[in-house]
């Protein structure tokens, strides 16, 4: 039975990262609960028919967290165990950033500030087509340095896209340091509210809070785009990765892999 268990998802991410000797582990760990709640309870998405007409869309605008989405797509039946195990092998299609040629991935991101605009277009398409589709998108707090994020929010408010749900992964870090050190964001929720959005704030690792915010915001069909500011921990789930930005770049070795996996298995 598919449960989208966050621990299982983190273990899958860790196995992929080790198999592929890849980076961005911390970026993936901070969005695990946001994705598991979406896939388990909200996203109308069939992993066996990922392009189905009428599906809800999930655009991972912060493409750097894509391993967490691969893990969820694996649980959905979209990606095989073999494909996950061969991560980063020559000639494989699962790349280090989200890529729309992969089944279940809606937009090619990683160049930051692109996905939200594409998501706004999908949401507008649903409105124009008079469907009840929703479009969810996950943006990073570092990513909202990009001017296009704010272009997209102005647009979404103007075109009354209350079917657009923006989940801000507010883990407080970006590539070179904390968000306060690099480009201080101030009141993130207040900024989105000033752009005409309904804003909720949640603990981004509390599935109950995430779910409750989505449930209540889906009921608010008032023309205003929805923003959930999720306070998260970069590297969440493995003690020595949490709030340590080196895990934006560091690759696992046998020792760190075993130590991290022991924590994720011990917590089960």
């Amino acid at each position: 039975m598919t449960t989208f268990d966050p621990l299982q998802v983190r273990r899958t991410v860790l196995r992929m990262a080790y198999a592929g000797s890849t980076v961005h582990i911390g970026c993936a760990f901070s969005i695990v609960e946001l994705l598991t709640v979406l896939y388990r309870s909200h996203l109308r998405f069939d992993g066996h028919d990922p392009r189905a007409t009428g599906r809800d869309y999930l655009v991972l605008s912060k493409g750097h967290g894509v391993m967490a989405q691969y893990a969820c797509l694996h649980e959905s039946g979209c990606l095989s165990a073999e494909e996950m195990q061969r991560y980063f092998g020559d000639g494989t299609r699962l790349k280090g950033l989200a890529d729309a040629h992969v089944p279940g991935i809606e937009a090619t991101t990683g160049s930051l500030g692109h996905g939200l605009s594409v998501a706004a277009g999908l949401a507008l398409g649903a409105k124009l087509g008079k469907t009840d589709q929703r479009c969810y998108t996950v943006v990073g707090d570092g990513e909202i340095n990009e001017g296009t994020i704010w272009e997209a929010m102005l647009f979404a408010a103007q075109f009354r896209l209350d079917n657009l749900f923006v989940l801000v992964d507010k883990n407080g870090f970006q590539a070179m340091g904390t968000t306060d050190e690099v480009i201080a964001l101030g009141d993130v929720g207040g900024k989105f509210a000033a752009f005409g959005c309904d804003v909720a704030k949640v603990d981004g690792h509390d599935e109950g809070q995430i779910d409750a915010a989505l449930v209540s915001m889906k009921a608010m069909q008032n023309g205003r785009p929805k923003v959930i500011v999720a306070n998260t921990v970069k590297g969440k789930g493995v003690s020595f990765m949490e709030n340590d930005n080196r895990w934006h770049y560091t690759r696992l070795d046998a020792g760190t892999y075993a130590a991290a996996m022991a924590e994720l298995e011990g917590a089960a």
């Binding site: 996905g115 594409v118 277009g121 999908l122 398409g125 296009t148």
Partner: peptide, 16 residues
């Protein structure tokens, strides 16, 4: 906001 416009166009094209 031309950059957003092109992203929106991509989303609309994906939506048919």
């Amino acid at each position: 906001a031309e950059q957003n416009m092109v992203g929106v166009a991509a989303g609309l094209a994906k939506a048919g």
